[in-house]
Nucleic acid binder design. Structure first.
Length: 615
RNA sequence: GCCGACAUAGCUCAGUUGGCUAGAGCAGCUGAUUUGUAAUCAGCAGGCCCGGGGUUCGAAUCCUCGUGUCGGCACCA
């Protein structure tokens, strides 16, 4: 297919902005010189088109920045999942308020409709050209070969491999979204550059849809909803990263805990509990003192140093040590809603997603090497049961042996294969994170995506050969020989804090009946109906449901509205009619319907809804 | 920890270039009203303007040091 060389912007919109050749996006500048033919890419919102558009928008932004900040030097400006960014440096401070100015400048450049030209020069020439930009020079250090391409639009030139739009006039619908600091090369030892993020689309509608979607996501932010629904709070005087659970959050959490408790008992786990602080000597034995001490909190009691636990393994090991064990006893499974403290860096704290004190649904399985696979399968199954109950999309990653590791290769191979087999047998997809395992063993991480697309690790399943060895754990084998057990460290929700945060965003606060802080809102029509409301409320408690009576001295409409705003799953209105007929008038939030039920059927319905979920 | 921004009533937010007694809506309290499915009316109360220090005749407002929060980066056993 021949390529046209349009003479005005409108023609570009009609014609291709780039072509796709052997799955590679080739811009017109490159195609013109190389004569490639291929599938046309038009300016639309396809991934290929957006890739080109956003890359060029990043350049346009750099052009605007250069024009506003004369001493600006530029590092890299790639296209990423959520748009694009450019890292740069200037002597002036760039804040959020400056984004509008930069956008304005970008638009005024775009109006000039500069052609984006491409030419190649030798590396030496490039180094001469960018000799005043030490950031660009450091980019060049990493480029192999001795020729580089330069893209030029108006006076602005940038070292770049492309692909780019043919003309900057095509860039119209974009927005600079955030300004941030970022370490050069992603390494905290390096200097900090200014990074501006932006987004661009082919048309106005797509940009608007994107911005609306972001605004929607913001509404379901668990920090906002947690505040509105009074689930939890943080207070400056209490300290950063230490959540306070309010009654509504406490009820929700208690429901989750009790469901999960039963689920563990069904699978043969025994509840145990270790102390909150253990002597530092134990942390030295486990290796945490040496390797992770800077993330732990320590205190002295009678001149003996104690470490507040950052995990529950050691406590469970002490449970294991309390008895002699036979191979016949294994697997042994201990679980605990273990409160742990970790010194997270201030900048890492984020609502309930990242805190300094949290409760893990933690368990340790002590088993024989032969049992690893079946135990993994059981845990993966457990995870899937819970994730599918909540309709979560989740992703699993198997992390393999890292550089720094303990245990011999053979054991690593067996355990890594055990993880892979378990996944394959369940036909569960997974990704491999090569070398991303813990130093004591490979692991499977379960990641859930939040309302704005960020991935958060929740559950984890880790094979541990290190701690059993360090603590010299053993059991008696068939021939009465001493054998070292294998330890599987696992958490399914990960932590109640993070999981409830994600649940809140997932349901936008509209929790399903079985987990909701309050199951039913009761609205008596008039004062004379309050007794019946109380009666109903008591009956609900008897079947394990929480309710709230809205009997304030307000209009009925107002109280229905208030009840609705609490996001309670079901509202029942009761008045003379209901009392006389022993019925309730139901308003179901999910189905948006109103209907009547006899009191008996209503209670049965609630009971069914609460009990229909088991993990 | 790093870069940038922010912190005013329980909540959401006004508060001009430093200058009157720091305001509003919602929530709360009191009264009237007793309501049939998303806001009844009236009144009242509510503030160490995040904390310490400074500049100034005068600071919610300017400077400084903390604390906390937000957006990223780095970190996340």
């Amino acid at each position: 297919m021949a390529l046209c060389h349009p003479t005005n912007i409108e023609d570009y919109i009609l014609n291709a902005i780039a072509i796709k050749h052997n799955d590679q996006i080739i811009d017109l500048q490159t195609a013109a010189e190389m004569g490639f033919e291929g599938e046309q890419i038009h300016l639309d919102n396809s991934p290929e088109s957006l890739e080109v558009l956003r890359h060029s928008t990043a350049h346009l932004m750099a052009q605007a920045i250069k024009s506003l900040y004369k001493d600006a030097e530029f590092y890299v400006g790639p296209v990423v999942k959520e748009g694009f960014y450019y890292d740069f440096k200037t002597s002036e401070t760039v804040g959020e308020a400056d984004l509008k100015n930069i956008e304005k400048e970008m638009l005024s450049f775009a109006k000039k409709k500069y052609e984006i030209e491409k030419y190649e020069i030798s590396m030496d020439e490039a180094k001469e050209k960018f000799k005043n930009d030490h950031l660009k020079l450091s980019v060049m250090e990493r480029i192999p070969g001795d020729r580089v391409s330069i893209y030029k639009q108006g006076e602005f030139e940038d070292l770049c491999r492309g692909p780019h739009l043919p003309n900057i006039g095509l860039i119209r619908y974009f927005k600079l979204t955030k300004v941030a600091g970022a370490y050069l090369g992603g390494d905290s030892k390096n200097e900090v550059l200014t990074r501006i993020y932006g987004i661009a689309f082919a048309d106005k509608e797509a940009l608007k849809a994107y911005l609306d979607q972001m605004a929607e996501a913001e509404k379901r932010d668990h920090r906002k909803l947690g505040n509105e629904m009074k689930l939890f709070t943080f207070r400056e005087e209490v300290g950063a990263g230490f959540p306070i659970w309010l009654p509504a959050g406490g009820r929700l959490r208690a429901r989750l805990e009790s469901l999960l408790f039963k689920a563990h008992r069904k699978r043969g786990y025994e509840p145990v509990r270790g102390p909150e602080m253990l002597r530092s000597d134990l942390w030295k034995t486990s290796g945490h003192y040496q390797n992770y001490g800077e993330n732990m909190y320590f205190t002295n009691i009678d001149e003996i140093e104690f470490g507040v636990k950052p995990m529950n393994c050691v406590g469970h090991i002490k449970v294991y040590e309390e008895d002699l064990h036979s191979y016949r006893d294994l697997p042994l499974k201990y679980f605990e809603y273990g409160v742990v403290h970790r010194h997270e860096m201030t900048g890492a704290l984020h609502g309930l997603f990242r805190v300094r004190e949290f409760t893990q649904d933690d368990a340790h399985i002590f088993c024989t090497a032969d049992q690893i696979e079946e135990q993994i399968i059981e845990v993966v199954d457990f995870v899937d049961k819970i994730m599918s109950t909540f309709e979560f999309d989740y992703k699993m990653m198997i992390s393999t042996k890292p550089e720094k590791a303990v245990g011999d290769d053979k054991v690593w191979e067996i355990s890594t294969n055990a993880l892979k087999n378990a996944m394959d047998k369940n036909k569960l997809p997974y990704e491999i994170d090569e070398g991303g395992g813990a130093f004591y063993g490979p692991k499977i991480d379960i990641k859930i995506t939040d309302a704005i697309g960020r991935e958060w690790q929740c559950g984890t399943i880790q094979l541990d050969f290190n701690l059993p060895q360090r603590f010299e754990l053993e059991y008696n084998g068939e021939g009465n020989e001493k054998i070292q057990p294998v330890m599987i460290h696992r958490a399914i929700l990960g932590s109640f804090e993070r999981f409830i945060g994600i649940l809140t965003e997932h349901y936008a606060g509209e929790f399903p009946m079985f987990i909701a802080p309050t199951q039913v809102a009761i609205v008596p029509v008039a004062e004379s109906h309050k007794d019946y409301a109380k009666e109903l409320s008591d009956k609900l408690i008897d079947i394990g449901a929480d309710s709230e009576i809205f009997a304030k001295n307000d209009s009925l409409n107002k109280r229905v509205r208030t009840a609705e705003k609490t996001r309670v799953p079901m509202i029942v209105v009761i008045g003379d009619e209901e009392i006389q007929n022993k019925t309730v008038a139901i308003r179901d939030r999910r189905s948006r319907e109103q209907y009547n039920l006899s009191q008996e059927d209503f209670l049965k319905l609630i009971q069914t809804k609460i009990n229909e979920v088991n993990f």
